[in-house]
Structure formats: structure tokens, C-alpha cells
Design a protein around this nucleic acid. Structure first.
Length: 1061
RNA sequence: GGGCCGGUGGCUCAGCUUGGUUAGAGCGCUCGGCUGAUAACCGGGAGGUCGCCGGUUCAAAUCCGGCCCGGCCCA
């Protein structure tokens, strides 16, 4: 496949390899490869099968795949069952769209049966989409046996759990405040709530709450929902904040000090006087008279803590009065406050938004109408400070736009207190990547965990398995499908989903009455939350469970902290008092190029299949995981993908290079390997062997620690820096020779060794591409796919850290040489006669001496001289100059003569004298003697004209640019070789083709030089040369071209070989 | 309002655990060079108040405190 296309094409590779995998059942073979070996159990967090896989999902799924492939290659029997989260709100929304349902009436008309059928269709569709996207990603899970949360044998595990919880007293019924749409008559979830915030105009009223025991003292509250006042049971204040008591028209009003000015402006208060400032805690416990006590008589019987000032941490000092109207039945925070303070949870409003009889005067009014009447009543009772209007964000029903109302209603909860401590203790034994996700983020969440509300007024979900006796109220929690057979009434088709399950009726064991199901379905998080048992059919397959539980590894995105990570731990602790997983890898989110969250409304979502089409699966995989630690948020930057593709293309070319020469020389890796050729390995070979074994170490360690980005980056760095840029470049000349030298074979064997390791290490990251490479290097006794190969172990014999260090020194020195060449204007094609290297340290000296040949070749130098540490080349001269500023005053006129004399004197002599005697004596032409001290003189090193100097980190480099005839001849030859090679390439010649070559140069000297090196040129370019000293017409069967080499015009013509020669 | 993570050249990131030469790399820019695996590559150059303020210290990108900004989660 490698030579079929010129350039790495991810799409081409994917298609071929995917077909090959399929035709040869590779996936199945890989999954079953390690049966019987120690188990590595992975629990798949089931994606919600609604919508399509986007790039964020993709990232997480790549991490899963990498870890699973790695563990498989490590020889473990990897449990990798796929799973799909099928139920819940998003699907219901889609079904409603498809069936054109907008109201509850539409739903009744269409019928729940039809609704459920459609939901199943939606799920079927998305599962197929997710599966194909996952398969294209090459995520090798067991899809054929995937678990689905909508299946009855799955849901049965939820029932099992709830029955157990109920029996132990942990499944309870309790009041709770939830947002309702009065028009749709249904509570909405947090999700739905977030979709519907809009700016609306509402009343904004300030109300005087009369304090008991005084006829003119009031606490002032503010609200935008007057209809909630009948539900008022308390006033919340911030005990730490300062409050002020005002005198206004003979009355005393209390508000927060900080909000005084705002309040005065808002209500247009003309005159007031501060009576005193005090801490809020002074107010706590004060009783007040409910402002609508007469209109809503129920308040007369509210006792205990009702109508009291209480303290709260939720008091805002941004708006209002700092004294917060609290209606426990109409706000989640109010509700919490109510529970804490034993307030009545008084809810005189029905789910249709109409006041009930409990609402007294307002009975029968809608919340909207009631608001108006309440304002009038307050006005009349002189309890209204001010009634205005406000524009603010308020949640509306996303379906019908009706303002939502918060109402208290009975919901079902799983109690957290009995298991909280076990969860915290269990979590301490779980390994989290990164650590803070477990200790800080998850740890905090656990500490603050509250009872879990599991009931939903929905359709497409696991039904709540509680039946209540119509007659005596006795409850029955059904724990299995089998139990349904005890029903006295049931539908013809007995299914666990609604509506069928709603028709199941039991006989009450207490009173003989009929028991009907409580019509809730369950939170979908409960579905996925029991995956640790349900995905493997725990109820019927304990043996499997014993083998897999607790799972070795799970990984999902960070937002699952309060989601799946939590629900898994919760249910497992409830059942077994221990966590269901041993380790958790957190994944960060993927943002767009500009760091913005991807969202449909913004239109910046990158879908997985689009990304695969545009960039290819392997590049996307490698990119996503090398960019950052798995748990960091990343920006997806398309231009960075091209870089990955280019790098993989380079690796592709490395393989192509190897393939070309291996085939040319019929290289046999079984016969010639780094063991058998050990004696012939050059330092650069040993270096690469060391590097590649070190690579195994690093990659293995990084994967074990889930520092996946380090593994990916290190592999990329290796094949670009070490393999392509350094090693391949250094062996070009070795492989170009025609004979089968040991030296060439050593290079081949080394290259093969490195390619093999890189291929295997790449397998988890770029599974398609690695398979292509593996086909090129596969030996007879290798498994058929790279994904069945064992993970390599580093061969310590080849690891030589010193050698690796040395190469760094040599490369740095080579860089210095190249910089020096540039300074001296000598292109690399022109040999230089000498480079002189002066190492800075002993280590550098050893390194440079060991790699002297390597350096000499790559620097294109005829000779390499290695000096002692910090020595100067013997050609260095030390020039002596007078310090004019110092000597001027001292010597006057004579300074000119001194300067002249010094210029011709060897500085080393002067230096020696100065060191010995502390002075240097100079005899002037007028016979006078001048004594110079070292401060009088400036000693300056100087190199001969033909030297350039360059400094590296480890050595000083001097390049002797002196050109001999030979150098000029070589340089000219190289100039021609280069051009002939370009032309060969343009003619698309085979590497081995011998061609005829005409060179025409109108320059006697160059002609002579060329003739002298014709053999060298012929050898390098595989040509037969004819050199002409003047220009002639190019024969017709030649491909000719004119070139300029410096000032020189030359013509080169090539002729393809005759077929029969 | 709370929790967690991040802020380092134009862009994307490393370095921070354990304070210590001139803060590195890739991309981009620019000038030059190389090339029979490579639409690749190599070298020179320009480009950084390491978010801000304060503290600890002989010495802070690094440790501590406060603040600002961005992201995520929760309320």
C-alpha cells in the first residue's frame, strides 16, 4: 500500500485497512486474543444516543481506545462491552418534534403507545449513527453485545436497586420545589430550564411586613412575584450584614444598610431619618404578622416557626432590601430554608397555576390575576411601599413560552445520609487522574451530597416501580419482572415501559384494595448509574460480575463528576458499600478554535464524521491526545491538524525510503539484524538503538500514568527528530553504495529495528496507519495484525544514556558548524578544508571524539581537528594594542611609535613577559625604553583571514575556509551532481537507471575540473558522462536544460537508457 | 455566590512538584542554505513586563497572599 500512493492519504489508508480488518475478522480476533489471561475490566460510560458524535465525544473515545489497546497489547484480557444510554428527555423532545406534539392534549390524542414506538425508532437510529462513527474512529468495543438502558433486563436492575433501597428505608417520598409549566402541566428539569430564560416585564413591589408587638414597625421586603406572597412564611436576612431602622412618616422601617440608597431612589422616598444601624442577627427570631392574614385565613393556623425573621446565606445585597420574602413552596432556596427552620411548606397553587381553596380570597384565580388583586389588597391595607415594574431574566417554558412557576410537590428520593460516609471512604481508595479531580472536585461534591430526587413526570424512561393502594395507601415496590405476574389486572402486552406498566394493578395485602403505580418515571442518571451491574446482567450472571467488579478503569469528561461518576458510586455504595471502579480518568472538554464552547446555536460544533472527512481519523486521534493532558480543556485548532498530517507524511516517507532500499538490496531482516551485525554498528546506529529503547520506556511509563499526551508527543518527537531528521539524513551515503557492505546492512538493520518499534508504539494512537506500516515490516512469525503484537519491552543492553547525551553535544556542535558556514558564506555543498573544534568540557570532548566521523561527514569537511578543552587553534594570534586612553597622557608623542611596534609583535610573547615580570619593555627607535604594565595593553585574539568562528553550547568551532584546487573541484562536481539529480527526478527515472549525460561548459578551467572528477560524478548520479568545452545543440533524444552556477552558464542533457542496453 | 482548572513571543504549548546560567519548542514571519525518502528539511534573525499587585528570599515564571481575566461545574 505504501508505494501505491505518493503521499500519505488518511482516507485511502482508512478505507483499505478497514476493509482488511473486516475481511479478516481482526477486531474479533483482537478482542478474544487474551482469553484466560488476567482481566482488565473497563466499564463504558454509555453515550446518550441522541444527536451525533462530536469532536468532544471523539476525544474521550480516543482515550478509551488507547488505554484498551494498550492493555490488550500488554497481554490482558480486556473487558470492553459497549453501551448506550437510551432514555430521557432529549429523546422525548425529538419524539415530540417528529410527532408534532406541542401540548399535553396532542400527546393524549396520539397515545403513549405510539410515542414509545417512536422513541424506540429514534434510539435505533442514533445507536446506528453512534456505532458507525465509533467504528470509523476505530474504537474497538464489543458493539455486538452492547448494553442498552431501555431493555427490560437492564431496567430490571434499576428496580432491583430501588426495592433494596426501599426495604432498607432509603427510598423515600418527600416534598420538593420544582419548576412547573402551568400550561403544559408538567415539571421541567434543569436542562429545560436553562433553555428558556428570557427578558420579561414583571411587577416589582416593596411590601411592609408588620412586626409583632408594635403597631408601626415594619420589615420591608421586595418581590417580583406578588402571587407568591400567600405562600410567604418567613423573611430571610443576612445575620452578618448591617441593617438600618428608618423613620418614615412616623413609621419605622427596617432594611439593609447597604441597599438604603438604592431603595430610597427606587421608591422615591422624600424624607427619612436613620434611627440606628445594627447587625442582622438582632432581627433573627422576630415575629411578624402575615400581610395577607385576612385574605388567606390558613395563615392564622400556621404556627411554630412561621412568620419569623430567619438567617440565610442567600441574601442578596445587590437588589431588593436585604430582607428576603421567603415562600418555601415557591422557590428551591426558600424550600431549603423552610426545611431548616421548620416552616410550613404552604402551597395554595395547583399544578395548573390556579389558586386552590387554601388560597382563601384568591381561590380560582390564576397566578397572574392573583398578582394584580394582591397588589390592590396591599395598597388598601397600606402595606404597599411601592408597586413598579422591572425588566429581568425569567425562565419561560421552552415549549410554549409560559412563565414558569415554582411549586412544591411530592417527589421520590434516594437518601444520601446512610451511605455518604461509605462513599467518601470508598472514594479515598479510587485512583483519580488527575488527583485533584478526586480529592478536591469529587471530594467536595460528596461532602455536600444531598438526597437524590429520582422521580420525573415523563414518559420515556424506566418507570418508578412503586404501587400504592387506592384504599389504604399501602405501598408496594416491585423488584423484578417476574413479580408482575402477581398482578390482578394487566395489559395484553406486558411491557415494562409506560403506558403498559400503568395498567398493571395489584391487590393490596393489607386491605384488599387495588394498587396503582405511582405515575413517575425515573431520572435517566439512575439508568446509567447501575451500569456496573446492569451492563453485565448481574441478576442472572453473578459469575461474570465476580470477575469484573469492581472495574479497573472508567473514563469520562469532567462534567460527569456530579453525573455518572457520582451515580455509579452512589448505587454501588447502596448495594455493596464500595465503589464500582478502581480508577477514573477525567477528560477535558473541547472548545472551538477561539476558546468558545461548541454549541448548536453558535453553529461552531465540529461533528466527528466531518472531522474524519476533513483530516482523517488517525491525524484527529493523534492530534486530540497529544495536544494536552487528558483532563485539560483544549481548543480545536484546524491549522494544527495539518501539522500532524505533515508529520505523519514524513513518517510515511521514512517507510517509503526504507522500503525502496530494502527492496533494492533484498534486505532480509531475519538474517541481518542488529544482533548479528553488532560489531558493524556505527555510533549513530547505537545511538538510534538507544534512543528507540528509551522511547519504549517513556511511552510505557506515560501510558501507565495516563499521561497520554507525553506518550504521543514523545513518539512524534522521535520519528521526526531522531529518525527522520537525524538518523536518515546521516545514513544516506551509507545506503547509496552499490555493494552489499556490512556497513550498509548495519544501517538497514538499525533502521528496521527502529521502524518496528515505532510501528508497534503507534498502534494504540494511529491504528490504521500503524497497520499499514506493520504490513511493510512484518516477519513470517509475526501475528497478522499489529494490534495483536505484544507491547515491546525496552532492551536495556541498547540503552546508553551517555551515547544519547553525546549525540546532543554533537548535534549542537554541528549546528554551530552550519552557522559558521553561513557566516563564512560557504554553502554545505562546498567542502571546507578543516574544521577545528574546541570542546568546552571533558564530556564534550569525549562526545566529539566518538562521533568525529559523523560530524565530519555531515559538516562536509575534509579534516576534523579536535582540540583539548578550551584550547585555541594554533593559528590564533594574539594582537597587542595600547590602551590609548591610559597611555596617551603617559607617553605623549611616543605613543604613535609604541602602537606601531606593538602591531608587529606576537601577543603571546607579551603575555608571557607580563606574567613573568609584571611588565613589558619596549625599545623605541630613539633608543628610549618604555615599560608597559598589563593595564596599559589590550590583548586581543585574532584569527587568520580564512577562519570563521562560531560558538555552540558545548564547543567552539573554527572553520578553515581556505580553498584548495581539490576543494574547488569537489564543489564544482557537487554543483553538477545536484543539478543532474534534479533532472533525473524531473525525468522520473528509476533510482537504478544508468543514463547518458552531456555537460557543456564554456570555461576551460571548469571543464578540466569536471574531467578530473568525472568518475565521482558518474558514480553519484549513475550516468555516463561526456564533457564538452563549448556549447552545442542538444541531440533530439536528450532532455536538456540550462543552468547558472554562480556566474557560469552551463547546459546539462540527459538521455534515458535504451531498453536493450 | 461557591468549587475546580487555566493565564508564559502573533498562534499553540513546555518549564512550576524540588526557587539558581541568557525562560525553551513547534507553527507563523524574515533572510540564507540543503535535498534521489520527504509539497519535506537545516541554519541565521526579529519577536516575551512569564495576567496584575504585594510578600518570603541573596535570588521568584517557579513558593505564599490578594486581585483581574478566561473556561468548566454547581447554586
Amino acid at each position: 500500500m505504501l508505494s501505491e500512493i505518493k503521499r500519505y492519504s488518511p482516507a485511502y489508508v482508512e478505507e483499505r485497512i478497514a476493509n482488511w480488518w473486516r475481511e479478516n475478522n481482526i477486531i474479533e480476533k483482537v478482542i478474544n486474543k487474551n482469553k484466560g489471561a488476567p482481566i482488565f475490566s473497563f466499564l463504558e460510560g454509555p453515550p446518550t444516543v441522541n444527536g451525533f458524535m462530536h469532536i468532544g465525544h471523539t476525544r474521550g473515545r480516543v482515550y478509551k481506545d488507547i488505554v484498551l489497546r494498550y492493555m490488550t497489547m500488554r497481554g490482558l484480557d480486556v473487558w470492553r462491552r459497549a453501551g448506550w444510554d437510551c432514555q430521557g428527555l432529549p429523546t422525548e423532545i425529538e419524539v415530540e418534534k417528529r410527532l408534532n406534539i406541542t401540548t399535553k392534549k396532542d400527546l393524549e390524542r396520539i397515545g403513549l403507545e405510539r410515542f414509545i414506538e417512536e422513541a424506540n425508532k429514534v434510539v435505533d437510529y442514533y445507536i446506528s449513527q453512534w456505532r458507525s462513527a465509533s467504528e470509523r474512529l476505530a474504537l474497538w468495543l464489543d458493539f455486538d453485545n452492547a448494553y442498552e438502558t431501555r431493555r427490560e433486563e437492564y431496567m430490571e436492575h434499576v428496580w432491583y436497586l430501588l426495592k433494596k433501597a426501599y426495604d432498607e428505608g432509603n427510598l423515600i417520598e418527600s416534598l420538593r420545589v420544582v419548576p412547573y409549566c402551568p400550561r403544559c402541566e408538567t415539571p421541567l428539569s434543569q436542562h429545560e430550564l436553562a433553555q428558556g430564560y428570557e427578558e420579561v416585564k414583571d411587577p416589582s413591589i416593596y411590601v411592609k411586613m408588620p412586626l409583632e408587638g408594635s403597631d408601626n414597625r415594619y420589615v420591608i421586603i421586595w418581590t417580583t412575584t406578588p402571587w407568591t406572597l400567600p405562600g410567604n412564611e418567613a423573611i430571610a436576612i443576612d445575620p452578618g450584614a448591617e441593617y438600618v431602622e428608618l423613620e418614615v412618616d412616623g413609621e419605622r422601617w427596617i432594611i439593609a444598610h447597604l441597599l438604603l440608597q438604592k431603595f430610597v431612589e427606587e421608591v422615591g422616598l422624600k424624607k427619612h431619618r436613620k434611627l440606628g444601624v445594627f447587625k442582622g442577627e438582632k432581627l433573627v427570631g422576630m415575629k411578624y404578622v402575615h400581610p395577607l392574614r385576612d385574605e388567606v385565613p390558613a395563615h392564622k393556623s400556621h404556627e411554630g416557626a412561621a412568620h419569623t425573621v430567619v438567617s440565610s446565606e442567600f441574601v442578596s445585597m445587590e437588589e431588593g432590601t436585604g430582607c428576603v420574602h421567603t415562600a418555601p413552596a415557591h422557590g428551591p432556596e426558600d424550600f431549603e430554608l423552610g426545611k431548616r427552620n421548620n416552616l410550613p411548606i404552604f402551597c395554595p397553587v395547583s399544578s395548573t397555576g390556579i389558586f386552590t381553596a387554601e388560597g382563601g380570597k384568591y381561590n380560582g384565580l390564576s397566578t397572574r390575576d392573583a398578582s394584580k388583586v394582591i397588589i390592590e389588597d396591599l395598597e388598601r391595607k397600606k402595606l404597599l411601599v411601592k408597586a413598579g415594574e422591572i425588566l429581568h431574566n425569567y425562565p419561560l417554558c421552552w415549549r410554549c413560552g409560559t412563565p414558569l412557576i415554582y411549586l412544591a410537590s411530592t417527589q421520590w428520593f434516594l437518601r444520601v445520609e446512610p451511605i455518604k460516609q461509605y462513599m467518601i471512604e470508598g472514594n479515598a481508595n479510587v485512583v483519580w487522574w488527575p488527583e485533584w479531580a478526586g480529592t478536591s472536585r469529587f471530594g467536595e461534591w460528596l461532602k455536600n451530597a444531598e438526597d437524590w430526587c429520582i422521580s420525573r413526570t415523563k414518559v420515556w424512561g424506566t418507570p418508578l416501580n412503586v404501587w400504592t393502594c387506592q384504599n389504604c395507601g399501602k405501598k408496594r415496590v416491585v423488584g423484578s419482572r417476574a413479580e408482575l405476574n402477581e398482578a390482578i389486572e394487566k395489559p395484553n402486552e406486558l411491557r415494562m415501559h409506560r403506558p403498559w406498566i400503568d395498567q398493571v394493578v395489584f391487590r393490596c395485602s393489607e386491605c384488599g384494595g387495588k394498587m396503582y403505580r405511582v405515575p413517575y418515571v425515573l431520572d435517566t442518571w439512575l439508568d446509567s448509574g447501575v451500569a456496573h451491574i446492569a451492563s453485565i446482567d448481574y441478576l442472572r450472571n453473578r459469575e461474570l460480575f465476580e470477575k469484573l467488579f469492581p472495574y479497573d478503569f472508567i473514563t469520562e469528561a469532567v462534567d460527569q463528576t456530579r453525573g455518572w461518576f457520582y451515580t455509579l458510586l452512589f448505587t454501588s455504595t447502596l448495594l455493596f458499600k464500595k465503589p464500582p471502579f478502581k480508577s477514573v480518568l477525567n477528560q477535558g472538554h473541547v472548545l472551538d478554535e477561539f476558546g468558545k464552547k461548541m454549541s448548536k446555536s453558535r453553529g461552531n460544533v465540529l461533528w466527528a464524521h466531518d472531522a474524519f472527512d476533513r483530516f482523517g481519523v488517525d491525524p484527529v486521534r493523534l492530534y486530540l491526545v497529544s495536544k494536552a493532558e487528558p483532563w485539560s480543556t483544549i481548543n480545536f485548532v484546524p491549522s494544527e491538524l495539518t501539522q500532524v498530517i505533515e508529520q505523519l507524511n514524513t513518517l510515511w516517507n521514512v517507510f517509503l525510503f526504507a522500503k525502496t532500499y530494502f527492496e533494492l538490496d533484498k534486505f532480509n531482516p531475519e538474517r541481518h539484524n542488529v544482533e548479528s551485525l553488532n560489531k558493524d554498528l556505527k555510533p549513530e546506529d547505537r545511538w538510534l538503538l538507544s534512543k528507540v529503547n528509551t522511547l519504549i520506556k517513556i511511552v510505557t511509563k506515560s501510558l501507565d500514568e495516563r499521561e497520554i499526551q507525553d506518550a504521543a508527543r514523545e513518539i512524534r518527537r522521535f520519528f521526526i527528530e531522531d529518525l527522520s531528521r537525524t538518523y536518515i539524513r546521516s545514513i544516506r551515503r551509507r545506503v547509496w553504495v552499490e555493494e552489499q557492505t556490512k556497513d550498509k546492512l548495519a544501517a538497514y538493520a538499525t533502521l528496521y529495528y527502529a521502524l518496528r518499534i515505532v510501528t508497534i508504539l503507534l498502534a494504540p494512537f494511529t491504528p490504521y496507519l500503524a497497520e499499514v506500516f506493520f504490513k511493510e515490516i512484518r516477519k513470517a512469525d509475526d501475528p497478522e495484525s499489529v494490534h495483536m503484537v505484544s507491547w515491546p519491552k525496552p532492551d536495556e543492553r541498547y540503552i546508553d544514556e551517555e551515547l544519547e547525551d553525546y549525540m546532543d553535544i554533537v548535534q549542537d556542535t554541528l549546528t554551530a558548524v552550519l552557522a559558521g558556514r553561513q557566516k563564512g558564506d560557504r554553502k554545505l555543498r562546498w567542502p571546507v578544508s578543516r574544521i577545528i573544534v574546541s570542546p568546552k568540557t571533558q564530556r564534550a570532548k569525549q562526545a566529539l571524539s566518538r562521533y568525529a566521523d559523523f560530524l565530519k561527514t555531515l559538516a562536509n569537511a575534509q579534516k576534523l581537528e579536535l582540540l583539548d578543552i578550551n584550547d585555541k587553534p594554533k593559528e590564533t594570534m594574539l594582537r597587542v594594542k595600547p590602551d590609548f586612553r591610559r597611555l596617551g597622557p603617559k607617553l605623549g608623542k611616543r605613543l604613535t611609535q609604541v602602537a606601531q611596534l606593538l602591531s608587529s609583535i606576537d601577543g603571546y610573547e607579551v603575555k608571557k613577559e607580563l606574567e613573568r615580570k609584571g611588565k613589558y619593555s619596549l625599545l623605541l627607535p630613539d633608543k628610549s625604553e618604555v615599560n608597559l604594565e598589563s593595564d596599559d595593553l589590550i590583548l586581543e585574539e585574532q584569527l587568520p583571514e580564512n577562519f570563521v568562528f562560531s560558538e555552540g553550547r558545548f564547543a567552539f568551532v573554527y572553520i578553515d575556509l581556505f580553498e584548495t584546487d581539490e576543494i574547488r573541484r569537489m564543489a564544482i562536481a557537487n554543483e553538477f551532481i545536484r543539478r543532474i539529480q534534479v533532472m533525473r527526478k524531473e525525468m522520473n527515472l528509476n533510482i537504478l537507471d544508468e543514463v547518458d549525460c552531456l555537460i557543456m561548459v564554456q570555461d576551460g578551467e571548469v571543464t578540466e575540473q569536471l574531467k578530473a572528477s568525472s568518475e565521482y560524478i558518474e558514480e553519484e548520479t549513475r550516468t555516463r558522462l561526456q564533457i564538452h568545452g563549448k556549447h552545442k545543440d542538444i541531440p533530439g533524444d536528450y532532455f536538456g536544460k540550462s543552468w547558472k552556477i554562480g556566474e557560469l552558464d552551463v547546459t546539462i542533457a540527459l538521455r534515458k537508457p535504451q531498453d536493450n542496453t
